[in-house]
């Protein structure tokens, strides 16, 4: 990479003559690897997906290089079962989107309610204990997500330990139908993404200056007021980061809905997943759904950034 540096004037003289141009001459080439990484791993796949979403599907997967809006048309418009009725809005996929957003929102909220006290607890332990608690929080996540989700299914199924245990102590006579429910999916999502909530909030609370709470108490604030008016606003960046880190991946999650849910709990992630599997797949449609999902996520992030920018400028 050093070889990429230009044979320009030596840095010292470049700065002395007051050129930001000299500075730029050096920095520009040094940024090349960064741009290469971003290009190859970020822009290129998105671009590829964008292009694919406008292609024609081939049966048994793959694409034909004929440009068409068919994939988006399939998402938003219906012309009846046989395609001969006047075009109407197709609600099927929008409903899946809505359900996913709702599920992801609920998951984010639950993660926040559980994650905030957890993060608070860890951040207020003596420093030596904190790393132990953090370690314990992250230990389950060293195991592959698929295996963890499957094991959750084993736990919840009719003859799994939970139902058998409850029946053994006589609380219930028939197994509770836990698998293939919204509850199971929610549990799976919660279990998958909780640390993404705990860690950023932990980082924010750990940096929180508890003298602020004392100062507020000194000025006659009650505990509740201190939490609402001092603590929450100050650690808000951590909370926002945690919410984004949970909401975005749970919106596109497919393992938990696939394994723990049924047809009624179908989510975007599974919809996309299906389009790229086997002979039933439809690559352009999968790409189109992905693009729409990405647009949605970007919109959420944009709104959040606008709100944060406004708060910061205050």
């Amino acid at each position: 990479m050093a070889g990429a540096a230009p044979q320009g004037p030596p840095q010292g003289s470049g700065q002395a003559s007051g050129g930001s141009t000299g500075y730029r001459q050096i920095v520009g080439p040094l940024l090349l690897p960064t741009w290469a990484v971003i290009g190859v791993f970020l822009l290129l796949p998105v671009l590829l997906m964008g292009v694919y979403s406008f292609l024609t599907k081939e049966f048994r997967g793959g694409v034909i290089w004929d440009f068409t809006l068919a994939a988006y048309d399939q998402f938003f418009v219906t012309r009846g079962l046989f395609g001969d009725e006047p075009p109407q809005i197709e609600w099927t996929y929008i409903a899946i989107f809505w359900r996913s957003i709702w599920q992801a929102g609920v998951c984010t909220l639950i993660c926040l309610i559980v994650g905030f006290p957890t993060a608070w607890f860890i951040a207020t332990r003596p420093p030596a204990q904190r790393s132990v608690w953090l370690f314990l929080i992250t230990v389950p996540y060293w195991v592959n997500l698929l295996i963890r989700t499957v094991s959750l299914k084993f736990l919840l199924r009719d003859n799994g330990p939970l139902n058998e245990g409850l029946m053994a102590i006589g609380l219930i006579s028939d197994p509770l139908p836990l698998v293939n429910t919204n509850l199971a999916v929610q549990l799976g999502l919660f279990y998958s993404y909780l640390p993404f909530m705990v860690l950023p909030i932990y980082a924010a609370v750990e940096r929180y200056n508890f003298a602020l709470s004392e100062a507020a108490a000194d000025l006659y604030a009650t505990r509740w007021t201190i939490l609402r008016e001092i603590v929450l606003p100050v650690v808000k960046p951590g909370i926002v980061a945690g919410c984004i880190l949970v909401f975005v991946p749970s919106l596109g999650a497919f393992l938990a809905p696939d394994l723990l849910g049924g047809a009624k709990t179908f989510m975007i992630g599974s919809l996309i997943d299906e389009q790229f599997k086997g002979s039933q797949g439809n690559w352009p449609f999968g790409a189109a759904v992905s693009m729409i999902l990405m647009a949605l996520v970007l919109l959420v992030l944009l709104v959040q950034a606008r709100a944060a920018g406004k708060a910061g400028a205050r």
Partner: peptide, 20 residues
């Protein structure tokens, strides 16, 4: 008596101003 009920105010060594 909790601190918020004491008619005593403090100027803290490290200021502790509310940053927001």
């Amino acid at each position: 008596l909790e601190p918020n009920l004491r008619p005593v105010n403090t100027v803290f060594q490290q200021y502790a101003l509310f940053p927001h």
